[in-house]
Design a protein around this nucleic acid. Structure first.
Length: 466
RNA sequence: UCCAGCGUGGCUCAAUGGUAGAGCGGGUGACUGUUAAUCACUAGGUUGUAGGUUCGAAUCCUACCGCUGGAGCCA
């Protein structure tokens, strides 16, 4: 007897009369005194549940089926039949139902067929995949990841797996997780009393990566179009709805490209991913539109057809100053945009994602390319309503002299970056790239407002419970 | 890290100094090709932890723990 997923049965892939094996977990059970029970099961394959009809003459009806509660697992051999009730076209008339696992202590089983708070669901991260919401998140996360690879593949990019363990801090900004096998209770010391990292596993200090950019630039200057997609770690003590200590980042890097090319890439990229998710997860998106964010679908659809607003940082400052809005921090040329400024631009002024370009060099990282005006760098941020910065990128400084000058200005030692500088010594070219926070993208797609609700096991300061 | 708020049955919440309640979920029963079914009955809580004030504390005070929202930093 063939096995079928709930999605296959409900999708009409099996003719009425076919005998199949379906397996999943109980969502609800209703009994009829006429002598049968309705059991809705879900196996994660799609949003909808499949209805099993179990007659009372099944051998384990009293002892097993009537004890099924939410969360129990079932393995059902049955016949695909047209449903006599409303609400579904087909259902399974059970021939027998095996129960691998009942729910022990059902009055304490945390997941009920009702609305739970997101906060509570985070406390049961091992059981929340069984909810409508997290099932939908999981499928959309998969669809988005697949769309990302598909976009780059069809556009001639190569996926490069940059190292998770690194010895350099890409942003020059500290806050890394240390990787060490030294015995913390008995650290080796140098003659000067410092910790002797020469005795550590890699014979030097090492950390978890905060960005694959520097490493992927080397491949960019050989393969032309490359990208990374992998986990990223930041030990920043930031406790907000848009920060994780462990998150996934997508970083394309393109040779012979400038900032405008990069902004176009970001726009094409986002549109492609939105379109694919809308195509491939209509039921899940319908759920988010109904239960979370009413405009979840319509705003993605309108974005796919629109052209992203682009503005210079200087222009953005002028718009903010002319807005007449009372901001807590006054917008002024030379200081970075505050969250309240970004929100105004994207939620009120543009009511759509907006690309802000060409920031003052003082507030941006050392590797960004100095513009001809001598005071701005070719950096860009894509800001999204409700999320803030979803993409941050720049054209890279490809001129050796200017790059070393900027490094010195940022207090970085050239010797720590000699391999990176080699890329400017040997056949340098203009190139550009950006970093996209994958979870922030998912927040935008689903309308969920907390980043902890779009990653399977969120890691945040003071919290890594599962 | 800073500011604010919140911790009451399995879950969502009520009770603002005077005997801790409801809905959902669980159990039992009734009823129905049912749709997070419906109806009745029932079990379930030393109110986050430790102190303090008071005749009396879920309620007021202190500390700690946890969570949430906002800020900074960023993706």
């Amino acid at each position: 007897m063939p096995t079928a997923s709930v999605r296959e049965v409900l999708g009409g892939e099996l003719a009425v009369g076919t005998e199949v094996l379906v397996q999943g977990w109980v969502r609800t059970r209703r009994d009829s005194k006429a002598g049968f029970s309705f059991i809705h099961i879900n196996d994660g394959s799609c949003f909808a549940n499949l209805q099993l009809v179990a007659d009372k003459d099944l051998p384990n009806y009293e002892a097993g089926i009537l004890r099924l509660t939410s969360g129990a697992s079932v393995s059902c051999r049955g016949t695909v039949v047209e449903s006599k009730g409303r609400g579904q076209t087909v259902e399974i008339q059970a021939l027998d139902i095996d129960i691998p696992g009942l729910v022990e202590d059902p009055d304490h089983y945390p997941i009920q067929p009702k609305q739970h708070s997101y906060e509570f669901l985070r406390s049961v991260a091992h059981l929340r995949p069984r909810t409508n919401t997290f099932g939908a998140v999981t499928r959309i996360r998969h669809a988005a990841a697949r769309a990302i690879h598909e976009f780059f593949d069809t556009n001639g990019y190569f996926w490069v797996n940059t190292p998770i363990i690194t010895a350099s801090d890409a942003e020059g900004a500290g806050q890394l997780f240390r990787v060490s096998t030294l015995d913390l209770m008995n650290l080796p010391r140098t003659d000067q009393g410092q910790v002797d990292f020469g005795k550590d596993f890699f014979s030097r200090e090492t950390f978890l990566t905060v960005s694959g950019q520097l490493n992927v630039e080397a491949f960019c200057l050989a393969m032309s179009k490359v990208y990374t997609f992998g986990p990223t770690f930041r030990a920043e003590n930031s406790n907000t709805a848009r920060h994780l200590a462990e998150f996934w980042m997508v970083e394309p890097e393109v040779a012979f490209a400038d900032l405008d090319d990069l902004a176009t890439l970001a726009e094409d990229f986002l549109k492609f991913v939105f379109q694919r998710v809308l195509e491939r997860c209509p039921d899940d998106m319908a759920f988010f539109a109904e239960a979370v964010e009413p405009t979840a679908i319509s705003r993605l659809e309108s974005l796919v057809d629109s052209r992203f607003e682009r503005m210079d940082y200087g222009e953005a400052i002028k718009i903010l100053q002319a807005s007449g809005k009372k901001f807590e921090f006054r917008p002024d040329w030379g200081v970075d945009l505050q969250t309240e400024h970004e929100r105004f631009l994207t939620e009120q002024h543009c009511k759509a994602p907006v690309v802000v370009m060409n920031y003052p060099d003082e507030i941006k990282a050392f590797y960004m390319r100095l513009n001809d005006d001598g005071k701005t760098v070719a950096a860009m941020d894509v800001l999204a309503p409700g999320i803030g910065e979803i993409i941050g990128g720049s054209q890279r400084e490809e001129r050796l002299g200017l790059l070393t000058q900027r490094m010195k200005h940022h207090g970085l030692d050239e010797h720590d970056y000699s391999w990176f500088l080699d890329l400017r010594r040997y056949g340098t070219v203009p190139h550009a790239g950006f970093g996209l926070g994958f979870e922030r993208l998912l927040n935008y797609i689903t309308g969920l407002s907390n980043i902890r609700d779009v990653i399977p096991y969120p890691r945040t300061p003071g919290s890594a419970p599962f």
